[in-house]
Design a protein around this nucleic acid. Sequence first.
RNA 1: GGGUCGUUAACUCAGCCGGUAGAGUAUCUGCCUUUUAAGCAGAGAGUCGCGCGUUCGAAUCGCGCACGACCCA
Length: 494
Amino acid sequence: MEELNQLLKQRRQKAQELSDMGVELYANDFKPTHSISELLPHKETIPEGADHTAGPRFTIAGRIMAMRKFGKAAFLQLQDASGKIQIYIKRDAVGPDVYTHFKKLDIGDIAGFTGTLFITKTGELSLMASVLKPITKSLLPLPEKFHGLTDVETRYRQRYVDLIVNPEVKETFKKRIEIISLIRDFLNNRGFMEVETPMMHPIAGGATAKPFQTHHNALDMELYLRIAPELYLKRLLVGGFEKVFEINRNFRNEGLSTRHNPEFTMLEFYQAYATYHELMDLTEEMVSWIATEITGSMQVTYQGENVDLAPPWKRLTMVESLVQIGGIPLETLQDKEKTFALAKEKGIDLDENVGLGKAQTELFELLVEDKLIDPTFITAYPTEVSPLARRNNDDPTVTDRFELFITGREIANAFNELNDPIDQKQRMEQQIEERGDDEEIFPILDKDFIRALEYGMPPAAGEGIGIDRLVMLLTDSPSIRDVILFPHLRPEKN
RNA sequence: GGGUCGUUAACUCAGCCGGUAGAGUAUCUGCCUUUUAAGCAGAGAGUCGCGCGUUCGAAUCGCGCACGACCCA
């Protein structure tokens, strides 16, 4: 028998006492007639000082969040999914037996009440209870009412408690769900079709990242949790679906930070016969619309910084951004030796085999990225860092690609898709060669993907948007863990 | 992987130049039928994250470990 502390013993004892009185501790037959939020508008129509017992009766259920007990009466705060309301319960109204049951209830218990609405002396809408029904006994005490639960470790490990006691946390996750729903609406309205592609891949492709590995017993084969859905969505373009999207988890076996969780949610969408310019337009429209729906404005504040999401957004090539924002002379950027020298001076360690484009990209990440607060599309990414993107017709050293940055963070990545199977195969092989010594990245050529391209993939543009980061922006959340219900943590002791 | 900070009652936190562990909330008891961080009076509640060391004596000092946060890679 485990040793229980005093508080836990007391709760168990009260539960036993209630049970002994014939009260069902975990009742399953209670039906509220109303949600709490449905009662709140009545405040406007009930005259102050009106008869407590007059008016229609309502039945509600929820968790008791606070109790202010007097000898033979008490006020409670009851919380359900929709809101909170005060309950007034007095012995004379419910009878001595029920009042005895009530005295055995604790903060945290779930209970149902039937009663009439009235306004208290202090002007608060309240339910005068005539019926009380204990529904679920809580054996663990909730955190303190005033400070709530602030210990982040407990908040993440026991998100259910966090959600009970911290209303703003619940709001953030409601917004997350709403954002995803708005994305679906937006894309569905434009004729995109939502699809589901495999989460377990025989080859981890579509991005460069370390995958999680698993094993399929019946087929006796290794499988990888997907690092990106890209190659499957493109197969669907080959198959004739011209506008597809998928919103789901990607898994990357890499470090954790305020911006990285090993599983994260990605929107990817592909549109045949479109170009990345059209996707920039679409992205501006979608994100600014969602911001308006969620926050009421296209001007949002993120961690004290003002961000203007109103279109049109700034569009710069990577080289332009290095000149304008990074302060690097164009002449330097066009010369491989000078660029490498500058990179070295800035403390960037570059392999001798890499090209000018890689060096530019590193300089961009170091000098420009975190200065892009208002939304900015960076275009013309070097080909050598864009293995799946189509080369630019006029300058084959860069691709028809953009990344979108807001508050210094990468939010989206998009490009005209490479649909030349010969070029694609060569570039994949080159990638494999370059990362060949990193054993955890599993360099395997996806021959079936090449075969699909050989059948002919229509010209298309595709984009990925990191949903977690978008939600962070629109909910002013400093850490990705604040927008993921159950973020990854090491296991608890014991 | 490196650095900094943190871990004390169920929760929020004090205590830390070493000397038998404290507050508020919550809980329990008594009083209280319009309170809203209700009030008044009283009480109980702790492996001070874990381990080793220094010391007559460690929540406090040192080392190691665990978990977490932030920053860096």
